[in-house]
């Protein structure tokens, strides 16, 4: 692999090793997944519904145990020492839900302190909420009146404020309006530049190509393709994606794909 040299220099913040998950009902959601996210990198997981993206993230969060293989956060096994591992991670789900009776600020305050950051002031919370683009009139409104996008923004603000080395994002832009989506991509770009390692699942191929250092395509739990940003230059990722998903291609013939999409 071409990232081999970098791996030796820098320990990955997020790493999956031969990660396999077979659910109780026999569904193989992940099949020998290997991936690494280094500091200052964004890894975008693409894949259709049911490809295994959420399963991967749930294993990192220790919500489910892998059938075999390991997941590491900052070198700590996420399923053996979950408490230790989770101090190194922030998480934004595809549908951020907060306490409906608390205001935005109260929610942010609670979850940020739960994440171990106790010395923020109200103005820090306001700054973060401004940064994710939540209108300031909503800061002291109860969450029950928030739209999905507004909740999503609060979730992102919490992740930013937690200031952990690794970040897990499960379709974070779902529910965001185009402006907010664009804003968000700029934001995680900033976080990456601060040295965070970000693993993000998304259906947004264009944004993935625009921002991600690595793009992985999952199909039925198998990582069918993994490309660096450089490799994707000039490639029509959409075509590539559709073709991988349709099963036209497999990893044995990547050059064909490149040729096709460049044509």
């Amino acid at each position: 692999m071409d990232t081999m040299n970098e791996t030796i220099k820098q320990a990955p913040l997020l790493e999956a090793r031969n990660l396999t998950k077979v659910y109780e009902d026999g569904v193989k959601a992940l099949d020998n997944l290997d991936l690494q996210v280094l500091p200052g990198e964004i890894y975008a997981m693409l894949g259709g519904n049911g490809a295994g993206k959420t399963t991967t993230i749930n294993i990192f969060l220790d919500f489910i145990q892998p059938t075999s293989g390991q997941a590491f956060i900052n070198g700590i096994n996420a399923n053996e020492e979950p408490l230790e591992a989770k101090t190194n991670i922030a998480f934004v789900s595809e549908n951020v839900q907060l306490y409906p009776n608390f205001t935005a600020i109260q929610n942010v305050d609670f979850f940020v302190r739960l994440g171990g950051r106790h010395n923020y002031s109200r103005s820090d919370y306001e700054t973060a909420l401004n940064r994710v683009g939540l209108q300031s009139q909503a800061f002291d409104k109860k969450l029950k009146d928030f739209s999905k996008g507004m909740r999503q923004k609060c979730g992102i603000a919490i992740a930013i404020l937690k200031d952990s080395p690794a970040i897990l994002l499960d379709e974070p832009t779902s529910g965001l309006d185009p402006k907010a989506g664009k804003e968000f991509i700029r934001l995680i770009g900033e976080l990456r530049d601060e040295g965070k390692g970000i693993l993000m699942s998304t259906h947004d191929i264009f944004r993935a190509k625009e921002i991600a250092n690595h793009v992985g395509i999952l199909n039925n739990g198998i990582l069918v393709a993994q490309k660096t940003q450089a490799e994707l230059k000039g490639v029509n990722l959409e075509t590539l994606y559709v073709e991988y998903m349709a099963g036209y291609m497999d990893e044995a013939e990547p050059s064909l794909v490149n040729n096709l999409s460049e044509a």
Binding site: K86, L114, G116, K162
Partner: peptide, 14 residues
């Protein structure tokens, strides 16, 4: 159901 359980346990909470 609320989704807050996941967000809570994404932190180092036993």
């Amino acid at each position: 159901e609320n989704g807050t359980l996941k967000l809570t346990f994404a932190n180092s909470v036993s």
